[in-house]
Write a protein that binds this DNA or RNA. Structure first.
Lengths: 332, 332
DNA sequence: GTGAAAGCGCTAACAG
DNA sequence: CTGTTAGCGCTTTCAC
């Protein structure tokens, strides 16, 4: 049975006062007597009143909706970020509308369309789209905050990670421990992956060491395969710097699979600090990205863009902190 | 700069006709001359017109919004389901509003609240909440379809999986291959996990075999630990029936880690058929849950509930199909 | 096929 | 502190 909802008018009548005052009372507007507010609240509860968001948005010409696009739904770190953003948004009184549809050209535009029709105040984009033009197009239509590595978009606020610094720190750490043969399990053509690979190469050369790179993608399977490629060579590494934690975890699994111990035989270090990294089974040493902080900054950046009349874009670069666990040791 | 959007009135004026007709033209209403429609479309495009969904929903007193709650965001199968539902909904002309907030008492109610205020036509719930009361409460407020194992909720359509049949099929398959020592890596207290464990026990006893169960949870780490528990015993199993693929994959990784080959030394079978299961690195034999079909049926069930005046609930039980890959072999 | 009129449920001035 | 008055942008009868 399609139930009709009680309207403000119903509540006003039942409470014996004007709709305007009821509206104010319900929204916690300052100019309402405390007793009135309580009375209204109880009447509304009795009637099971539900504010109609459509009406509210229509008349106030603004919403509290923020579109959130998850670039790689199967990437645990993206889910973690999305969850953090969800909370950060809620704290700011904003309502996320999530999208799982990957950021390719067509679907991005379609999602943008939807956000616009919803009159969303803006969008937060997680992850690297293949096509920078798609996000650029989206940014033309509503304030966008991009989380993750990106080219220098115009009109887009970005929360970047200092991949280079993190990579250098990781490599130097391994070098400092005495490792000489440090291999790199790289991602593919995401910008962050490329930067990490470049920084790795530079750091190795700086230390007078020869880079050893196996390309793959940012998932566990890739780590698995990467180890196979690495270990059949004549100069097997004593340490592996993985482009992210998923790869690192896949690599650890595979190393053990072929009878190698971590870290006694091979050390492994990753980037991200996904939930699984801290699990005792892996105890992965890694460079932590603070998803909570990124989320908070993203929401803040969005608010800056919407508050001012002139869209004030933010460009931030966050650094990562090393989390030392048990997957790294000096070489034998 | 906060841009104002063009309204229907603007388009109507520019097109030299009434708002009503423009509205019909834009929405593809039948009673509009073809030339008119084209004209309106081009004028609207020129003005970069965006229909205001709030206004539309308000006046038509209905939305195309469907709330979708993901119970376990870190469970790849849930993400897969959510993605399928996303597509199925889009095909039905409905708009998903996703929620990552787990289904505990408080947040469920809060999400329900939000869906109601949005005047969503219904909700699709993925996964097993700890608290059945929360979902029951949600169902009282809007049509709900529950995906996954559940108690027999009233007023909730459910798309169930035949865990028992799938389990029995898996166990019999192993028995048929000659396995006698078949262990079970169980989940925890999710209903589906319990059912699988119960069916496993029954199937083992039916075959005159002694059950061997290690409890854990539905993730890869649990498989890892489960293997450790299993293999240090005196009667190590020749086959493992895992309560889901995540566990199975964790188990395979760990088996290899301790020098055991899969399937030569130990066979492993799972349930779900998550993306990683088909990866060459695991090649996991498993019982497939068809997420696409589940999604389609869920949307269909929702439509049945909203179409009829009396909410017609659906209770479906889907069976799984075995996908034979390379993680299972006869015992040595 | 097309237009005119009448609101949907709510908030935002503006008065008191 | 509270009420009155106007609509927000759109769809929907109901005419023509």
């Amino acid at each position: 049975v399609k139930t009709k909802f009680a309207t403000l008018t119903d509540v006003a009548r039942a409470a014996g006062m004007s709709r305007a005052q009821v509206s104010r009372a319900l929204r916690g507007d300052p100019g309402v007597k405390e007793t009135t507010r309580e009375h209204v609240a109880s009447v509304a509860a009795n009637l099971d009143y539900r504010p109609n968001l459509a009406a509210r948005n229509l008349v106030s010409a603004q919403t509290s909706t923020v579109g959130v696009v998850i670039g790689e739904p199967y990437n645990p770190f993206h889910i973690q970020l999305a969850t953090s953003i969800d909370h950060a948004l809620a704290e700011a009184g904003l309502d996320p509308v999530l999208s799982l549809r990957a950021l390719d050209d067509a679907s991005t535009l379609r999602e943008a369309e939807r956000f616009i029709n919803l009159r969303a105040v803006g969008a937060i984009l997680i992850g690297t789209p293949r096509d920078p033009q798609a996000i650029q197009a989206m940014a033309q239509k509503l304030p966008c905050v991009y989380l993750g590595k990106s080219v220098d978009y115009k009109n887009v606020s970005t929360i970047d990670i200092d991949d280079e610094a993190a990579t250098v720190e990781a490599v130097r750490y391994l070098v400092g421990l005495g490792h000489r043969r440090i291999a790199h399990l790289a991602g593919s053509d995401e910008i962050s992956a490329k930067e990490r690979t470049a920084a790795y190469t530079a750091a190795m050369e700086e230390a007078g060491l020869k880079p050893n790179i196996v390309y793959g993608s940012h998932d566990a399977m890739s780590g698995h395969r990467g180890v196979d490629a690495l270990m059949k060579g004549t100069r097997a590494p004593t340490a592996i710097f993985a482009s992210n934690d998923a790869i690192a975890i896949g690599a650890i699994g595979r190393l053990r699979g072929i009878g190698l111990r971590v870290p006694q035989d091979v050390s492994v270090i990753g980037i991200d600090d996904i939930p699984a990294a801290s699990d005792a089974a892996f105890s992965l040493t890694t460079m932590r990205q603070d998803s909570g902080e990124q989320a908070r900054l993203a929401v803040q950046a969005l608010e800056m863009m919407t508050a001012n009349t002139k869209r004030h874009t933010t460009k931030l670069v966050l650094s990562m902190k090393m989390v030392v666990r048990e997957s790294v040791a000096p070489p034998k």
